[in-house]
Design a protein around this nucleic acid. Structure first.
Lengths: 106, 106
DNA sequence: TAAATAGTTCATAGTATTGTGAACTATTAA
DNA sequence: TTAATAGTTCACAATACTATGAACTATTTA
């Protein structure tokens, strides 16, 4: 099983989706780029925390950055992540619907 | 920010993709259902560990199970997860390619 | 009924992620 | 040059996740 490595790398990229704040950022950046301060203002919380999450996503190749003067702008490096994210959101919604139906049938 | 809840739920589903063994299982079940023992034989490791990962994926609504005699068959509850997973794999591959190019240009 | 197969559950120890605040760097404006 | 803005980095404590083995349940076969 030498090719277990690919699963590890793959899981590693997928992990980037596994945090509420990071999902929120992926959502925010769907159709535009935003600078750190904008994102912080929208999401709330500590700047150090946000910075670490953004840095993680950038390291994993999910976001890219562009510096303009004092501001650092963040955007998706590929549309695929946002697409994947939307699919997972649909899975969630489907699950919630099923759950509702099951509850309704009791 | 009352709708933070959706990000939490969403991240929670996405987390299911964030482990090498779980990615491997998602891959394995792309086009067929398999029983526990089959999956264990392919992936290796401890049955208790596999059982826990499968249980987690089932709880998150990503897999569904079907019991036939002694055997429990696992399959995807929706094609969307596998799709999302394939997209993330493409992101990984793109990143690796970029990385290679960057290295080549030094 | 007894033994075997197929899996689940549980406790626990080890590891990885996360949030926090303080200290730091870089760019711009006064 | 000084102060302000925009972000990053670091150390550490709290929390969550993971792997392991033993004990357990359910179904089938002998």
């Amino acid at each position: 099983m030498a090719d277990k490595k690919i699963f590890e790398l793959h899981a590693n990229v997928c992990k980037a989706l596994g945090h509420p704040l990071r999902i929120e950022v992926i959502d925010l950046l769907q159709d535009k780029e935003l600078c750190f301060t904008d994102i912080l203002e929208i999401t709330g919380g500590l700047k150090s925390n946000l910075s670490q999450h953004l840095s993680l996503m950038t390291k994993k190749g999910i976001l890219k950055t562009r510096r303009d003067g004092q501001c650092t702008f963040f955007s998706h490096s590929s549309k695929k992540v946002a697409q994947a994210c939307r699919l997972m959101r649909e899975v969630l919604v489907d699950n919630l619907k099923n759950h509702k139906e099951i509850l309704a049938n009791i």
